[in-house]
Amino acid sequence: MIHVHDLRKAYRVSRRAGFMRRETIVVQALDGLSFDMSRGEIVGYIGPNGAGKSTTIKVLAGILHPDSGDCEVDGRVPWKDRVAHVRGIGVVFGQRTQLWWDLPARDSLELLGDMYGVPRDRAARTIAALAAELELDPFIETPVRQLSLGQRMRCELAAALVHEPAMLFLDEPTIGLDAPSKLALRAFVRRLNRERGTTVILTTHDMDDVEALAGRIVLIGRGRALFDGGFAELRRQGSGLKRIVADLAEPPPGGIVAPSGMRLEASAAGRAAFSYDPSVLPTGEALALVARSFRVADLSVEGPPVEEVVAELYRRHGV
């Protein structure tokens, strides 16, 4: 469904080089990016700031022309066949809006239906269904500028779906949202993918978003794909260390010292986290070791947090 091969795009950025003088430097946003995606997939597209994520989305959406490389979405080259291409995609830019600021959300949805040439009765049905699923009804008649961020984000999602696209690009959709809004948004996207088979590309810094939704991760840095695979595989890319979190019944008199073969990662408020390498120290022994060393109220074993694996990958690739 999506085929990207050796995509390149450079920006010219000006930089002050003295009083009244400026120079132009070239920033290579995409530098030989390649990946493929099939219909019905949800892919988490992650990478540090400035890695080229948004540029990729904009190329896939037909907004930007790349300098070179191939890109096909559903058999079309997005920027060459833009008008036909955009009918089949929905885009949410979390930091931008596509709703008319001064108009009630419902007006925006109806106008978008008209823009995409959706027959009126069909648009009305879609809007009603979206309003029910995303629970828009309490504020759908309120001008967009008066909505809270969580309310607006739900409207943005509805706005991207009025023309029932087969593919959805979500660019940081949960940025700044509170926990209930995030959960609602994730549940909605999951349902959309399951029931309609909508293909989703999700760009985010929130690894919980990715873990909750995406079966596959593409990690990009310096304009290239550095990792492409599932979550388990991603975790294996990390240090391989696991950690035991212990709730201590009483603080040890001599302070918290890690048992041999383990390292103290953090301790606060009667809780300590020790890391260990399970290939050297089996988890059962590690647990026993911790239980013997301290008066323990509770113990739990965790894999390394995904955030840390990702940070480790960024470090390793120098991005």
Partner: peptide
């Protein structure tokens, strides 16, 4: 000015 104009390119028209 804000770059929001990129939105206009997502509409199926010139």
């Amino acid at each position: 000015r804000s770059g929001e104009v990129a939105r206009d390119l997502l509409r199926p028209t010139g």
